[in-house]
Amino acid sequence: MSDKLSARSRARIENSIFLAAVILLGLVTENTYYLQIMTFIGINTLLALGLNMLMGYAGQVSLGHAAFYGIGAYATAILSGTYALSPWLALICAVGGAVLVAFIVGLPTLRLSGYYLGMGTLGFGMIVNILFREWSSVTGGASGFVGIPVLEAGPMVFMSGKSYFFLVWAVVLAAILICRRILRSRMGRALRAIHDGENAALAVGVNTHYLKLKVFMFAAALGAVAGFLYAHFVLFISPESFGFMVSVKMVTMVVIGGMASIWGALLGAGLLTLLPEVLHGFAEYEMIVFGLVLMLVMIFMPQGLTRGFLDIYHASRKKRQ
């Protein structure tokens, strides 16, 4: 019993540290640029968290996840911008729409073993992106959508760097708690069982197809929430923000940070948001360095940085002893 208790209390400690760090960073940081970067990290963490459940546990990769991000962003832009609906109602529609679409895309492809979901989402993501670009009467086309309202809740206006920072990170914290609850529940045990051995999970009575579909829909929902937050933060969206390379970047966040690890998603999202900012100085070499870093990490730390660093740490401790 004590093992289990300590795991639970460790999770509690981790969450508290995380919460304290977020509050501290939010209170101390005054520089709007830094606040903005950290807000983007939060949005990307949401994307990575959902994808991490899908890739890390259900063993499926989605190569079109930016589509759900885009659906979230465009749904709220169109509903609250063009049709003046309350953004909060728009959020519900956006998430509902993304989940429904995920159901339709996932239903046939998740039945097959291998990377059929990856291929299906790849095609789906491209189509959605082309739709954003070509359906200009509704989406604003390639030049983008202007006129997204600022988020308000009663007396609160989420506009300044700080209020939006706290909004986004509150959502991230909620998402982390939800992921943890799922992983600890019957559903999460079944997911971890799929991770350990899919055939065995199937044989002991887990409906793997349905479970994967549920996780895919969950990941889509988190993607749509992230898109919603993104749209009301930057107040202008265009199709490039939801293209194929964005999907690839999300997958990369998960893999670099470490699959099947909640903090890995946070680390991956942080690094992949910061790296381009750092590399701006290199201008011409940005893509080369980015590609190279990606390859090197994956070649030498295939488990991701969280595990990679832990391994190095353990190895060095062993050496010292």
Binding site: V248, V251, T252, V255, M287, I288, F290, G291, L292, V293, L294, M295, M298, I299
Partner: peptide, 9 residues
């Protein structure tokens, strides 16, 4: 992902 990295590179 390694091939993705190579493509960007």
């Amino acid at each position: 992902i390694i091939t993705v990295g190579a493509s960007i590179f």
